[in-house]
């Protein structure tokens, strides 16, 4: 019996010696909290993690009935619509420019990749205090002044919502280099023979080659980039928190789901039941969005 559990040459034992510590940790710190949280979401759990008062679906009802929660989902949608196409276009553009270089390639790649070393906190502080500072000495307002325009209070102006410019550009700066690397790797895998064949067929270098050769060949990379961008947009917290919250608290606009959840679950109320219900709803939303995207891109089907 024991010999069977250990496997031939004790291979099963060795398998678990190698994978066991990781697997146990992942169960304890990955799966247990998830299950616990689902349980909590059905209880009234103010300031406690071992509640006794079962409330059924009340947490879900009050979460979905909360206009602020629904507007946080709308904020996520708007944010995604801004950030996904711009990051995609900019990182692809950078990759195409860098890819064609012969000399200085490593230098430019490093420059565009360097912001990845920066934290969202640091970048947000630079954006908030130096670039888009609402007073005259901010860089953006200095540039406006050179053109004779009045300074703009970038982060507190809601009509028009200038704060989106700040939020989107900070993430764009931080992420573009990372996705550029992915596109560069994709570009390297395009067979040179395709370009030669296209040239023989009379395709002009430039737009035609890009449209009919390069871009279709980058399909797998493009799909991966879009999926990653959407998931990351969904997890946005750091830059919103650091750009918009002040000593007076967080403004009533531009609250993405995680910021909302943070204040519900860990703010004054410490309502962990409600927070857990919100986490479960968000996990379902992201699952639906991911599956919908995978369907849309035709993932899982065999490529022709």
């Amino acid at each position: 019996m024991l010999a069977r559990l250990l496997g031939p040459q004790r291979r099963y034992l060795w398998f678990w010696v190698f994978t066991g510590p990781f697997v146990v940790g992942l169960v304890v710190f990955g799966y247990v909290p998830l299950v616990w949280s689902v349980v909590l979401s059905f209880f009234d759990a103010h300031d406690t993690v071992t509640p006794r008062h079962f409330v059924g679906l009340a947490n879900y009802a009050s979460m979905l009935g909360d206009a602020a929660f629904r507007s946080s989902l709308a904020t996520f949608a708007v944010f995604t619509l801004f950030i996904v196409p711009t990051t995609f276009a900019v990182s692809l553009g950078l990759a195409l420019l860098v890819h064609r270089l012969r000399r200085w390639r490593a230098f430019f790649r490093s420059v565009f990749f360097l912001p990845t070393a920066c934290s969202y906190v640091v970048a947000s502080l630079i954006w908030k205090m130096a670039v888009f500072n609402g007073v005259r000495f901010g860089l953006a307002n200095t540039v406006l002044r050179w053109f004779g325009a009045d300074p703009v209070a970038w982060l507190s102006t809601t009509h028009p919502p200038w704060y989106w410019l700040v939020i989107v550009t900070v993430r764009l700066w931080l992420q573009a280099g990372f996705y550029m690397i992915l596109f560069l790797a994709g570009l390297q895998r395009v067979p040179r023979s395709l370009y030669e064949a296209a040239a023989v067929d009379g395709a002009r270098p430039g737009w035609q080659t890009f449209r009919y050769i390069t871009f279709p060949q980058l399909r797998a990379t493009s799909v991966a980039v879009v999926l990653l961008l959407v998931i990351n947009a969904f997890q946005a917290f750091d830059e919103f928190y650091n750009l918009l919250s002040t000593s007076a608290g967080y403004p009533p606009y531009a609250r993405p789901p995680l910021v909302y959840l943070y204040y519900v679950a860990l703010g004054q109320g410490q309502d962990l039941g409600l927070g857990s219900a919100g986490a479960v709803i968000l996990a379902l939303v992201i699952a639906v969005v991911t599956v919908a995207q995978a369907r849309w891109f035709g993932l899982g089907r065999k490529e022709a």
């Binding site: 994978t19 990781f22 697997v23 992942l26 304890v28 710190f29 990955g30 799966y31 247990v32 909290p33 998830l34 616990w36 949280s37 909590l40 993690v49 998931i231 969904f234 997890q235 917290f237 995680l258 959840l261 943070y262 679950a265 860990l266 962990l272 927070g275 857990s276 919100g278 986490a279 968000l282 996990a283 992201i286 699952a287 991911t290």
Partner: peptide, 25 residues
């Protein structure tokens, strides 16, 4: 075992901060 590990990649880690906080606290 491998798919059990991969499964946790599907759950955005930021969504689990509330449950993880519950456990850690």
């Amino acid at each position: 075992v491998f798919y059990g590990i991969l499964g946790t990649l599907m759950i955005p880690s930021a969504v689990t901060f509330v449950p993880s906080f519950v456990l850690v606290s």
